[in-house]
Amino acid sequence: MKRLIMGNEAVAMGALKAGMTFFAAYPITPASEIMHILAEKEGEIVFLHAEDEIASIHLVIGGSLAGRKAMTSTSGPGMSLKQEGIGLAHMMEVPLVVVDVQRVGPSTGMPTLPSQGDIIQSIHGSHGDYNPIVLYPSSVEECYRYTIEAFNAAEESRSPVVLLLDGFLAHLSETVDLDRVSVEIKPRTLAPLGHGKRHFTGLLAKDGVPLTKDSLYYREWYGRVKTKMLETAMNYRFYEYLKNDQADTLLIAYGIVFRVILPLKKEFSLFKPVSLFPVLEKEIQAAASGHKRIVVIEMNDGQYRGEIQKVLPREVLGISVLGGTISLKEIRERLHDL
């Protein structure tokens, strides 16, 4: 059945479809609607309005350890607070999903205006090295689909997966037929607490025994976890490539920016990564070949451009759309001036 729904609502519905039965969060613009919708499911699912963002991520860790698919949602300021728990979930290998609906920062910034400023925070926000899977949809239907995929990736990788949205997308209403979206739903991979002897710890540990002074073991452990993350990510490589044979320029954009620049497909080739991290190295290199110029357009000061630059051995140009407003006219002009 076709319905008019908005991005945040699609995320909530996708989570329920994926089998999420534990949700804890703290209200924040522009992510609150996810909470409002899931609050009405209290009883069918465990719903907690926590005292703060730090509590909500840790409640979710507990909920997941005890056997339920779990999720929390927030925006940039809350994402900053959740980083501690995200690091813990990586260390303890706990599957869960964190939704970050981005707004203009730093700090309280421009709460009601959208941005894409949390790209680097989503992979480097917590201290230490870790290799998260980050997905970023660009339509309401994709919000639904990739929420389910985020849960699948979390289960398969046994790690916290970040689903990025922006304020535009979260509040964008589109007519979609969710019944036509078919995604296989992965079962739980973590045996729930209550089996007797396991010790989950934020310390470096081997079989539940802390090994906090063993550098060689750290290297072995890190190698194993990194390989696990990269191998799992191979099953979650989502992107859209619109090749224009006449074009000499490839535009790379994600989230709402891709939607805004979609009319430019007549003049340019367009590449939209949905799986932002790990970076789709091969796909981006293949798309880049045959184009003279590569331009990354994003609502931040070049955060993802830097990541693309790492995988392409030539200059990557960028257009930074700052301050929470975006127009095709402005982008067209700035492309002309490049």
């Binding site: 840790h58 860790i61 507990g62 909920g63 729930p192 002897k197 010790h199 710890t201 310390l203």
Partner: peptide, 30 residues
């Protein structure tokens, strides 16, 4: 936590209570 012969969780500084509450609300039998 690590010295108990049961399933145990050793979390970050200050967060034992929310993790414990999450576990309890997730599985009331524990």
């Amino acid at each position: 936590a690590g010295y108990f012969n049961v399933d145990s969780v050793h979390v970050t500084h200050g967060r034992a209570i929310p993790v414990a509450e999450g576990i309890k609300r997730s599985n009331e039998k524990l």
